[in-house]
Nucleic acid binder design. Sequence first.
DNA 1: CTGAAAGCGCTAACAT
DNA 2: ATGTTAGCGCTTTCAG
Lengths: 336, 336
Amino acid sequence: MAATIKDVAKRAGVSTATVSKVMNGSYSISQSTVETVRKAMEELHYYPNLRARNFAKQSTKQVLFLTTLGENAGFSNPHMFEILSGLEHVLGNKGYLLGVKSTTPAEAPEFVREIFDSKMVDGVVIHASVISRQLDDLIIQKEIPHIVLGQPSFSSHFCWLDIDNKLAGEMAANFLLQRGYQSLAFIGGTDEDKISAHRLTGVLSVLKEYDVIVPKHHLQYGESDCDSGFRMTEQLLQSPNLPDAIICANNYIAYGCVNALKENQLRIPEDMGILTFDDYPFSQILEPKLTVVNIDVYDMGIQAGKLILNKMKKPNLQIQFYCTLPSITVRGSTKE
Amino acid sequence: MAATIKDVAKRAGVSTATVSKVMNGSYSISQSTVETVRKAMEELHYYPNLRARNFAKQSTKQVLFLTTLGENAGFSNPHMFEILSGLEHVLGNKGYLLGVKSTTPAEAPEFVREIFDSKMVDGVVIHASVISRQLDDLIIQKEIPHIVLGQPSFSSHFCWLDIDNKLAGEMAANFLLQRGYQSLAFIGGTDEDKISAHRLTGVLSVLKEYDVIVPKHHLQYGESDCDSGFRMTEQLLQSPNLPDAIICANNYIAYGCVNALKENQLRIPEDMGILTFDDYPFSQILEPKLTVVNIDVYDMGIQAGKLILNKMKKPNLQIQFYCTLPSITVRGSTKE
DNA sequence: CTGAAAGCGCTAACAT
DNA sequence: ATGTTAGCGCTTTCAG
């Protein structure tokens, strides 16, 4: 049977209250008793029962990550796990345990209510894919310390955090112009693809600033996959005046784009520069390796962790959002 | 202030013990009082305080997943998150919460001891990358319900679970022979790469069974990356007698292999069949799409979840291991 | 600076 | 079938 606080108290010849104070670093304990108690704890291999502590303190030092998992999540959504890793890093260092729970938008409110009323966790990090108005109401009404990962698509009271895709687009355009590219093209998703759209907005705002004119056919819209990337690029190459660099809205599109360029005997980066977003593994595998505007999603997890820690400390803190900054990783698909 | 069991008892006009029994589905409660109590709970929006329950029951209904995370884990190790998803699926359905904690082999024992002595979790699922002899001793000594994901590389008392890579190799070879391929080659990692080695063992055992002779130069060893796959394939193509199919130890190698074949004007699958392992995203993107022997890692997570649930119920259960079965996903890189 | 004692909310013998 | 009551192990107030 594991030692309890009583055993320690007895062995150290003090009361349990004193032992408790030693553990919690109370200032009003003499150095000598601190040492006696510490010694007793070691000798007995004492470790406080956290279940009891949680109960007494009415807190669990646990944060829940609420999202949708399910088959293939690991492959199709590496970003989510990157965020999770960042989250765990911060929380773990602060002595918090990160719980993970898969749910759906429909079930989420019920679930959040449950774990919250049942006092299982101190705070919750919610992936935007499972939020709803109902959840918004609940969270606000119960004043649940929370952070939403991703900007809500409806107006809400959530405290959220997202990537600044527009800024990423701006960085992409600025980078290429600085490297001497003069005529940029963009291939990406349609307007419903918010991520792609935001990136494009950023690109265009920079071009406008520099008075660079973008011919209509230098903007191609399609799906977010490899085949579509191939087709959009072929379209682009029909233009009377070719661009000298292509910004691809994501990795899959970029892969199709590279294939199309190769098929058309265009050299990368001499004849055409390529730049894309997010450092998925095959940005680093393709030939040439791709220059990317990288969103540090691990860092996003870290920021989320810091925020939720803050929110738990001061629940009335009203940060509405925070954006992690993109950075550029230069590789062979753009010229020096 | 949230309602407690006392409030419910008072409102229902019964004792707290009765309320508790209703919650825990005791048989010795009359239907009528069950209803009265249920009604009172609803009216008060009562949800039991799990912290109190955990404390009283000396169990947390929590399982910890112990592994190494850190930056880039999401991208470089999708398998781990696939497993995590499977785990959560099983545990969540049984009312368990899955905690995640990143650690290192050096820190793991200390950490496991801590969370276990502190009674934070009921069981622990440990990735093989963080185990050690020290951890083995600890787990056995303290009789901690556990499952290790991946076969330990040293002899131990762990209860573990792994993928049957040898069987995967056998399936690969059998499949190709059945499809009419006659001469198989294998390119993969060196002997230290256990996964690759096991797959090769499986392949060879089938070939031996069918009395197919494998010329030495049909076996190439290198690194587990794209470049190495390219080089090994080029080596292979130097052979006086070419194989008609190549088994690649993993996706990265396969990618290099495809590139090399294309460069040498060999058609896939007409001139050369290709088969690899694990269904990483780019098996599905490459042209042609790759036939793979797929390890259902999500299922591995599910099996791990079931096992740990069992172990927690009967801690003296001595399953030593379990292997998840591979399956084949046929795509364009092998002929009909 | 230290100790006594009253909880924290629920469970589970044991009585009735 | 239901109630009484003694914990579960730690924290925290208040008194000394």
